[in-house]
Design a protein around this nucleic acid. Sequence first.
DNA 1: ATGACATAGGTGCTATGA
Length: 262
Amino acid sequence: MKIATWNVNSLSVRLPQVLAWLAVNPVDALCLQELKLSDEKFPAAELLAAGYHSAFFGQKTYNGVALLTRLPVTDVQKNIPGFADEQSRVIAATLPCSIGGLEQNLRLVNGYFVNGQAPGTEKFEYKMRWLVALRDWLASELVAHERLVLVGDFNITFDDRDSWDPEGLRDTIHHTLQEREQLQAIFQLGLHDAFRMFEQAQRSFSWWDYRDFGFRRKRGLRIDYCLVSEALKAQVAGCVIDTEPRKNERPSDHAPVVVELL
DNA sequence: ATGACATAGGTGCTATGA
């Protein structure tokens, strides 16, 4: 079974690219971030015609997340319970699947983590509060769901390998010790970075700035992740960043990341 | 360099992203 995550930076603009990508990469689940549209504008009919059910949590102009799945999901959760948030950043659901030869559901959590702008700003403080709330909620989710996959746009580089210029960008947004400590706290719940379970090329990134030919110059960040719980770790068969869509006309600035579970 | 490029909303420009 394959699960993918992709920050599409406007689903309205990127729908044709999403449909084209799914036609070539018929994953079991595609988790989207930055829909940038309200729920009434979500293209559920077009996706269903392409063979995908949708669970979505939109917002006008900003944010917005969705789960596109071959099979319908259950127990959909929108945002973090108990954490008042005007922004649509999390959607989670239970997905029927067959892993390790057993018919066992898994819990799929899709997050569009807060950007945070810069250390010292109100948005950075919001990012820290949001990360603490997410970690606390994930701890309880992991008690309820042994098999859990957390994917999304994390907006944090885990370590220096995840940045094209770790020295020059030290202590700037996506690179601060505070952000990395919060991400480590999430990993310490028993979640494993599927990408780093395998040998990967140097300068493997999932986002590149539109400006200054960032993609062509390999100046990017790895900020999009697929994490699996302890019970799923032995089932992870691979994890790749698909840079092909970044070569499209009018691309998203993010690339899809795909994890395979056997 | 509070820049660059892209998107939404709206129609000139601001807010936001990473």
